[in-house]
Amino acid sequence: MTVDRAADLPVLEARDLYCERDDRDLFTGLSFTVGRGELLQLAGPNGAGKTTLLRLLAGLNRDYSGEVLFQGQALLKVYAEYAAQRLYLGHLAAVKKALTPLENLRWLTAAQAPDDDRLWQALEQVSLRGYEETPCMQLSAGQQRRVSLARLCATDVPLWILDEPFTALDKDGVSWLEQQLERQVAAGGTVIITSHHALQSVPGLRQLTLGGSL
């Protein structure tokens, strides 16, 4: 029995999830938990339903059966509370091209509203120092991606849900992101991530492989 878990409720718990798309079963009877200090990597071939599961856990996809519990409570019942404690980064960056990185970051972190110093530091961390006043349309795809990723160090949110965050990043960006994941897990936070990237360096790594059989 998992006595140790009873004292410390899992951050997220999935019970008997079933989801279909276009008459095709993506997953059936899927149950798992994610706790503090853990990084859950969703793996599996293309079309296995990784993004669907991720959006489901983020509370964005509500077309499924089964239960998702956030700290023991039904996710959609405590959605506002849940949303305040989880950061969702989809494969769309939500970056407006006509605005500068600073303005974009300010909007992206509006819920936590960190002060400007923190935003500047975050932009420095993602090597966008000197671009604060440049409209994002003049930045490369990787740089625009970094604007969006700067949220990770501009706010303190216990649960990160990240969809393919390594896309379009260069070598430095990749190692920076790995550090961020390690930092989050070490601080007792939780990360759920879809990525084909090898994350062996991160302690607390667990993998969940989805079928993908057609």
Partner: peptide, 11 residues
């Protein structure tokens, strides 16, 4: 550009 997704995610 995904802003809508962020709204929905914001609760």
């Amino acid at each position: 550009d995904g802003s809508l997704e962020q709204w929905l995610a914001s609760g």
